[in-house]
Structures are given as C-alpha cells and as structure tokens.
Design a binder for these strands. Sequence first.
DNA 1: CTACATGCAAAACTTTTGCATCTGG
DNA 2: CCAGATGCAAAAGTTTTGCATGTAG
Lengths: 150, 150
Amino acid sequence: MKTTMEETHLNKHLSEHHMKVTKERNIILRSFLAASRHVTAEELHTLVKKKHPGVGLATVYRTLALFCACGLAEQRQFGDGHTRYELTYNVKHHDHMICTHCHRIIEFENEAIEALQNEMAVKHHFAIHNHKLEIYGHCWECTKKEGARG
Amino acid sequence: MKTTMEETHLNKHLSEHHMKVTKERNIILRSFLAASRHVTAEELHTLVKKKHPGVGLATVYRTLALFCACGLAEQRQFGDGHTRYELTYNVKHHDHMICTHCHRIIEFENEAIEALQNEMAVKHHFAIHNHKLEIYGHCWECTKKEGARG
DNA sequence: CTACATGCAAAACTTTTGCATCTGG
DNA sequence: CCAGATGCAAAAGTTTTGCATGTAG
C-alpha cells in the first residue's frame, strides 16, 4: 500500500499524541483525505467500506472523535441537521458561506474580521480558543437561477 | 391570566402569519419569554410543565419550529450537542462568545464585522440571508480561576 | 504481555410522525 | 363546522456503549 507524505506526517502526529497507529485508522485517514472537505460520519463510513467492508461505523465515529481530540479535524454543524467533519491539519483558518439552496460551501478568509474578533474578545475579557463564522444565503449560481425563474 | 404587552405583540405576529393562537402556544410563549435566552426544547418543556403539566414535548417542538418559521425565534447549535432556541423578535442581531468551561454565553455586536462580511459576500457573489459568528474560549472568570489553580 | 482498538448489536438520545381526539376562528 | 392543533406512543435517525475478541507497541 502506497503511503503518502501527508499520511506519514499525520501518523507522526497521532503517535506524538500517544495514540496507536492502527490499520483501521490509516484506512479511515486515507478516505478522509480523499473525501470532500466536509463529510458526515456516515458518508465517510460509506467511502471506507468501498475498499474495506469490514470497518464498522462505530470505529469511524471513534476515530473522528480521536482526530478532533488531537487537532487533526474539527466538527461543524451547518444547520442541515448533520454533523460534519473537516480536516484542519496544516489548513489555514477559514470561514464558510453555505448556500441553503444547492448546499455548496464556499471557504474564505479575512484577517480584518479576525482582528476585530480579537478586539471584541479583549473588550469582553474573553480568551479565544476557536471560532466559527458561517454565512448562510444563496450562491451566485442559485441567485442567477432564481432571477431567471422569478 | 395577565397578558403582557410583549405577548400581545407576539400573538399579533402569529395571527398575521395565519397561525392559530392556542392556549398551548401562549403557555409556551410565556415560558419562552421567561426562560434564559438560549434554551433547548427539553429545558423549555420542563419549564412549561411546572405550570401546565399537560403540555407534551412534541407540542413544544412543533411550536418552536413554528416560531422559527414565522421569524420569532432562531435555532442555534453551540457545539455541545444540544439544539438551542433564541427569541429574535425585536432583538438586534448579535453574535456569541461561548465559554467552553462554564457554558456562559456572552452576546455582542460589531457593525464593522458585519460590514466586512458583506464585503466578502460581494467578492464571492453570494447573497447573504443570515449569519452566525461564534467565538469559543474561556470567559474572564474561568480564565481567572485557571490562573489561580495552575 | 497488556492496554487499548475493533466489530457487532444493543442502548441512549433527540426529534419527528401517525392517529384519535379536541378546539379556535 | 372543520382545518388544523394536541397528547400520547411509536418510529426514525444519529451517536454512544458494553462486551468478547484482536492487535500494536
């Protein structure tokens, strides 16, 4: 089985956090890397099973929790009732615009917003560990379609 | 039963949206007004039952969904696995800082951040309907306690 | 060798739904 | 009067857990 540079780094990350590098965790990690950036546990499990039918859904849940605990991934909820997981290792912080029509997710970053957030935190004596900014609405294509219809 | 000015306005809002003003909806609305600003359906149901044991949880869910649909309330998820509801009628838009230690929620508003969000939306050809900014970390008191301990 | 990981199935939780009955407009 | 609201219980959906077994370090 070919091992990518990225996997090597991630496995190193796991062992540095005193976590066993198992066959299943590698499989799940590989599928996670190959999946779209915001997957649900079920979606990831489906991907995993395509190549390794033996892996159970519970293990996918446990492994995703593990990834979150050691800083490889983050949970997100975009309001459609599904919990999604996003790989955050070596990924610059960013925020999301979510199209409530076609469910497209647009990632963006804006340092001025972050700076203002820090300002607000200071004002409220709050120590920031993390933050989520989600903008809901309609993407360009869906707006266009609505215009054509309406 | 005493009826507050606020309830009168809200009932008006309901009927304007072609929704029946029932005994249960009034009871739930009253408890919602009296509850903390970010309640779960279960919490609200517990409050409601204290005065009106007959009201069912399903009705609380249905009524909260109704309130959301007609713009009186909004659903929020602060990452602790519970869906919370917040009254938004006549409330200025604001964002949240969530203390991950004591679960305190600090509300704040910042027009400069909103302006930058609009700027980003234009840049990505995105039509904003709504947005959520959540800052996670430790509030002043919890930071202080940690300092004392550590 | 042993602590921890896994698969499976059952359990736990949250939220929704079907249906008989009731009620606001 | 009747469309729609309610209570109850059952169902649906997601995530967690108990336990016997397997395996990485």
